[in-house]
């Protein structure tokens, strides 16, 4: 494999991991606007462990996933009971906070970041993708996967059927954060250099777009969206500074023609704004 092909495969693989991780949260109907926070937590955790403590990368990746999962559970616990708008605001602020903290923290290089991480290989990335895909296939056939969908559809109906919706959604969010953290670790050890700027709103938006482009109904829609969106800038680099404008237009066109994304049925995979949160709904008290 040429080094160019290898770099492409690594980048696409990591994007797919990010998309799949994000999709786990989305499958419960929860949209985060700060998943880069988990990516950053994963990237920095792994980099500290491999550089300063000489951990092998796979072990450091596990620690990254765990650290991101803990952060995801905490944020989820605070925000998931609230409406979509609050979740969006809290996750966005959290990612900004993480960004600020790492850019002020001398130990991890502050604004200039960390340098010298290596070890991300094609088998490692593809292995991770495979594990996550296997997990998602099992999930989609399981009782838990059904519970995720039920929560996405109607939280009050799910509660009435005896689902502990907050606990289930927090679990999904933590799993989602863990996968994103592992992707962050892999990304850091591919790029060799990380700094806070890499984990800003641009990257957060990109992760959301993977899912929206591919369609949120099936996980492989999100994966396909990630493949498409990470290949385009590589093969269309001749567009230079125009490429963001061209992408923007492409997206607008897509959302008009196929609001459900590339994969998914019409009226099926659209992002649906949730009802006003349960319990605070306009009541006919009768």
């Amino acid at each position: 494999m040429s080094s160019f092909t290898e770099a492409v495969v690594l980048q696409v693989g990591i994007s797919v991991l990010l998309a799949l991780g994000y999709w786990i949260a989305v499958s419960t109907g929860k949209y985060s606007f700060g998943h880069t926070a988990f990516m950053a937590i994963g990237a920095y955790t792994a980099s500290i462990l491999t550089l300063n403590f000489s951990w092998p990368l796979p072990l450091a990746m596990l620690a990254s996933g765990a650290a991101a999962a803990v952060a995801g559970a905490l944020i989820g616990w605070m925000a998931l009971r609230l409406s979509m708008l609050y979740l969006a605001i809290i996750t966005f602020i959290f990612s900004q906070l993480v960004n600020l903290l790492i850019s002020q923290w001398e130990y991890v290089g502050g604004a200039s970041g960390m340098i010298g991480m290596t070890g991300t290989t094609v088998p490692l990335v593809l292995g991770c993708v495979l594990i996550v895909v296997a997990y998602l296939v099992l999930l989609s056939r399981s009782r838990l996967g059904l519970a995720y969908k039920a929560i996405r559809e109607d939280e009050r109906a799910a509660t009435a059927s005896g689902l502990r919706i907050t606990r289930i959604a927090v679990g999904a969010f933590a799993t989602s954060a863990a996968v994103t953290g592992v992707a962050g670790a892999l990304s850091a050890h591919q790029l060799m250099v990380i700094n806070p700027e890499l984990f800003g709103p641009r990257q957060a938006l990109l992760i959301i777009l993977y899912c929206v482009l591919g369609g949120v109904e099936y996980f492989w829609g999100a994966a396909l969206g990630a493949v498409a969106l990470s290949l385009l800038p590589i093969y269309f680099d001749w567009l230079n500074e125009w490429y963001e404008i061209v992408y923007g237009l492409l997206f607008v066109a897509l959302m008009i023609v196929r609001p459900q994304g590339l994969i998914g049925r019409r009226g099926g995979g659209r992002i649906r704004l949730p009802r006003i949160p349960a319990g605070r709904e306009r009541e006919s008290v009768g």
Binding site: L146, K149, A150, E153, D154, R156, A157, A158
Partner: peptide, 12 residues
């Protein structure tokens, strides 16, 4: 409890 308003899970 069957809540009011026939809350089926429409896309399931």
């Amino acid at each position: 409890h069957v809540p009011e308003g026939r809350r089926v899970l429409p896309r399931l």
